[in-house]
Amino acid sequence: MYSFDVVRPKSVADAVAALGEEEAQALGGGQTLIPSLKQRLAAPAVLVSLASIDEIKGVSSEGGTLKIGGGTTHGTVAREVASSYPALAAMAGNIGDPAVRNRGTIGGSLANNDPAACYPAAALASGATIVTSNREIAADDFFEGLFTTALEEGEIITAVQFPIPEKAAYIKFEQPASRFALVGVFVAKFADGVRVAVTGASEDGVFRWTEAEAALSGDFSAAALDGLSVPADGLMTDLHGSAAYRAHLIGVLTKRAVAQA
């Protein structure tokens, strides 16, 4: 780890100001950033910890929408949305291990946009809205590729608004070593249609499987997916699985998610 300064602003406004400084870097739960720092792969001058900002923590609901503060940990989400959005709670409760879930935050995960992370699939399948320090971004416009999002320099995720679907499920097939998603599929059925988001598989990060969405919107059953497949082109190949295997798993996991929802 290189040496750096840490500031702990108590408000979003102070955090935004702090992030305006030279080589400042926001620190959420630190579950990706801290290991990178330890390996000397990142060298910020100032870490702006978001952990002391109470206004971006916690869960509330309004009508059919859940609002989760950007600084809310996975553990809190797993506990607090268990009855309102059980599929989301189950997803959050199965990220990493207890230590990760007690530190890692929803805002941190979405801002990092790891191509194998779970939260991007949940946000995209739910049609969530990412609320930042200066605007609201639809999930469909937020994820822009591997570790890339629509966030601008110094912009902080303050909350994520999840419309609550009628039915939903997330199925993760774990990469054997990291236990990140080798492939993860989040299926959410709303009154006006079904959304299917896939993580872990694509070279471009999380994506929607629109063919499956169309089929499921007409008939929300695993059988409706028969004959559908995702082309292997553009999917990842690594030590743990080829593009063809990932393409196959997308089909299997989507059916399982529909069956479980």
Partner: peptide
């Protein structure tokens, strides 16, 4: 689970618990 893998250039691909199961 366990597999220590080098690529053709001799780089250790399974160099951490993220890839070595």
């Amino acid at each position: 689970l366990e597999s220590c893998i080098y690529d053709a250039d001799g780089q250790l691909l399974s160099a951490s618990y993220m890839d070595y199961a």
